[in-house]
Design a binder for these strands. Structure first.
Length: 507
DNA sequence: AACAACGACAACCGCCTCCTT
DNA sequence: CAAGGAGGCGGTTGTCGTTGT
């Protein structure tokens, strides 16, 4: 039970009460109390209804206007971590796990920043994953990072990373490298070439002591053999304007955020420092739908890899959200298309497999094995993967969605027909899991579009304008950027096996 | 079957920064 | 310029389910 803290409760929930959960909702002595603890499906429904009507932001008004007896902060958290569209539930994929390691090595405990590069993932998820990992490895007496990932950034997370002390003499400008002989990867922040403003230099960041020249994106060296390969055909339909996932598009603008794209797509379309003078970005003929008829394989021999490729790699890894977030922002029908057309090779696994063949040190092998085992072979993650949507929390959310869908006026409108059509179209060509996803999110996602289209007023007012991280223009700019990277590329059109099929659970 | 250990995760808390007035 | 509100971030805690003994 937590009495409202007078007016002093500045959203911060400085309730000062015990952290106990499952508190009641009724006040004592007539004092209205804010409910704490787990959210119910009904509460979720209320919150979703509210966001549907008013958009994200103004979380404090949720309680005032919707009758939901939760503090604004709690509402925001609930929405961001559980209710908002495009959330990717389930266990982290091996690629994601690897990326988390890399990002943590680079950024430390900057969960939001890491989440910005893991589309559909929340900072809370990443944080939980990491903390669990820290505990486990500490117990096992293992180093936090695989030996091929060197943490050379001043660790901002000493309390939770006791096993990875920052070595003395760590440079202020962090470097980040892979030293596995089989990976031959090396990541360095090419700050001098990055056109992106450094988010770390932003005063927005808490007590950041990083060098302001630190590139926000993990830019790969030309020698990089990265973890992804993309095959064509690679079609982007211009996504519907959405509010999307503001959490990931505000401060940490890379990873598909507007901030990362603007420098590329600004009017003059000057050549990127990375691309050299020969590359001039030109306007796209059709931003509504365009295709990248190319195969891009990052394992190409260095000698035939072009600057385009390298740049694209950089953007893929650094701003994975540029693509992935586009994917995640799309309505389900388009989502399915993206899913079926983006091909990502899991060369992480391949490279780690090569480890054995190349006889690297046993510890590294063990670590890699462990990492994979955690993800695949009966480990905890597989457990969770199997039950991710069957969890009580998942059920709650699904219940809420069911309630919401069944009660929403949206269902009876013509929009519903469109949604159903989209469902039909998409489900025809999507795997079962994606079909389920389609059934799970479509109205929500369409609704987001709807909010933006029909309720632009409220949308613009969201969060005092701070919430408009993803705008139509921004997405368009991203598309321009991406397309420009493919502009002069040619390729074969061989179809590669769809790696999304290999992803567990919902993705 | 009972218990402990562990992992995953939701949610809370406090602090911080930015924006508005 | 200052104050207050709003929102975001990172740290922490408690609960629950699973697994192992």
């Amino acid at each position: 039970m937590t009495p409202i803290n007078g007016g002093a409760m500045s959203e911060g929930g400085s309730s000062g009460s015990s952290g106990g959960r499952g508190g009641g909702s009724n006040g004592v002595d007539g004092i209205l109390t804010l409910k704490k603890g787990p959210w119910t499906a009904a509460e979720d429904q209320i919150l979703m209804e509210y966001v549907k009507k008013h958009g994200e932001g103004n979380w404090n008004s949720v309680q005032r206007n919707s009758g939901l007896n939760r503090c604004g902060k709690s509402c925001r958290l609930r929405w961001a971590n559980h209710l908002r569209p495009n959330l990717k539930k389930g266990a982290f994929t091996p690629e994601e796990e690897r990326l988390i390691l890399e990002l943590h090595a680079k950024y430390g405990n900057k969960w939001a920043r890491m989440a910005a590069q893991l589309p559909g993932r929340t900072d809370n998820e990443i944080k939980n994953y990491w903390n669990t990992r820290v505990k486990r490895r500490k117990r096992q007496g293992l180093p936090l990072y695989p030996s091929d990932i060197q943490q050379s950034q001043p660790n901002t997370s000493t309390p939770t990373s006791p096993m990875t002390p920052t070595p003395p003499g760590t440079p202020l400008i962090p470097t980040f490298s892979f030293q596995s002989p089989s990976h031959s990867q090396s990541l360095v922040p090419l700050s001098h070439t990055s056109p992106h403003p450094s988010p770390l230099s932003s005063p927005h960041h808490h007590n950041q002591s990083h060098s302001p020249t630190f590139a926000s994106l993990p830019v790969f060296e030309p020698t990089t053999t990265t973890s992804f390969s993309f095959s064509s055909p690679f079609t982007f339909h211009r996504p519907a304007p959405m509010l999307g996932t503001p959490l990931r598009f505000k401060r940490y603008g890379n990873g598909g955020t507007p901030s990362s794209s603007i420098p590329y797509s600004s009017a003059p379309q000057t050549s990127s420092p990375l691309l050299g003078n020969s590359v001039t970005h030109t306007s796209l003929p059709d931003m509504n739908s365009f295709q990248f008829p190319m195969t891009f394989n990052t394992t190409l021999p260095q000698t035939i890899r072009t600057h385009h490729h390298q740049q694209f790699e950089s953007d893929l890894m650094g701003s994975c959200g540029s693509i992935c977030s586009v994917k995640s922002e799309l309505p389900s029908s388009q989502l399915s298309q993206i899913h079926s057309e983006i091909t990502i090779d899991n060369t992480v696994n391949n490279s780690s497999t090569n480890h054995h063949q190349q006889g690297s040190c046993g510890l590294l092998e063990d670590l890699l094995d462990e990492a994979h085992g955690l993800s695949y072979s009966g480990g905890d993650n597989s457990r969770r993967s199997a039950s991710s949507f069957g969890s009580r929390e998942g059920k709650r959310v699904l219940d809420a969605f069911s309630l919401w869908e069944s009660s929403s006026s949206f269902n009876s409108s013509s929009e519903m027909k469109k949604t159903e059509q989209a469902k039909d179209q998409s489900s025809q060509s999507m795997p079962e899991d994606l079909s389920k996803l389609s059934n799970f999110v479509p109205s929500t996602m369409n609704q987001v579009q709807d909010w933006n289209n029909t309720d632009s007023h409220s949308s613009r007012e969201i969060s005092n304008g701070r919430n408009l991280g993803v705008t139509d223009d921004h997405i368009g700019l991203e598309m321009q950027h991406l397309a420009s990277l493919f502009h002069s590329s040619t390729s074969d059109h061989d179809k590669a096996p769809d790696p999304w099929d290999n992803l567990p659970g919902i993705c």
